[in-house]
């Protein structure tokens, strides 16, 4: 586990949602008593350490046109999860892929989140099933979005 010092946490909070101005880091710096260069330096370090996964735009999928999402869960033999997980991870339309415990309904242990623009979900799932040679899956289609936000890691 990585730890962050209080200066890094302060910066982390400040760069969660940068202002849309020509020099956003200098503007943030002014409001928290730092320098723009200092914020950029710390940001690059956090990226390099992998504490920050990426820096950039976070989209609202459905508003960006990816109106269909489905959670598809797969029943995969323990000896095959690693291979299947890596295959799934390589597809751009899969945003998340996890092995979870306990498995859903005591068998669906590999979880994939899919995003697409239209009604081609069935085609995509068919393609995935073929890729891992396993048709033992369950589609959990989303019917309504109740909440979608980013986690706050530095405020609790």
């Amino acid at each position: 586990m990585e730890t962050m010092n209080s200066a890094e946490k302060k910066i982390a909070r400040a760069i969660a949602d940068i202002p849309l101005v020509p020099s956003p880091f200098a503007e943030i710096a002014a409001s928290c008593g730092l320098t723009g260069a200092g914020i950029l330096q710390t940001s690059r370090e956090l990226l390099q350490k992998g504490i920050m996964r990426r820096f950039g735009a976070v989209l609202h999928h459905s508003k960006a046109g990816f109106t269909k999402n489905a959670l598809v869960v797969w029943s995969v033999q323990p000896s095959q999860t690693e291979k299947a997980g890596k295959i799934f991870a390589s597809f751009s339309f899969i945003s998340h892929c996890y092995e979870r415990k306990p498995a859903f309904q005591n068998k669906y242990n590999l979880f994939t989140m899919l995003h697409t623009k239209d009604d081609n979900i069935a085609v995509i799932i068919d393609f995935l099933a073929e890729a891992i040679n396993n048709r033992n899956f369950l589609i959990l289609e989303s019917l309504e979005e109740y909440k979608k936000t980013s986690p706050e890691y530095f405020n609790d």
Binding site: T3, D17, L20, L46, R53, L59, Y153
Partner: peptide, 27 residues
């Protein structure tokens, strides 16, 4: 800046900023 401002106002961009690895932070 105008285009990005519009994309954000329309909610297509939720935010521009850091995405942290919660698991790495022990969450």
């Amino acid at each position: 800046l105008i285009r990005v401002g519009r994309l954000k106002k329309e909610g297509i961009i939720r935010r521009i900023g850091a995405v942290f690895d919660g698991a790495k932070l022990g969450r």
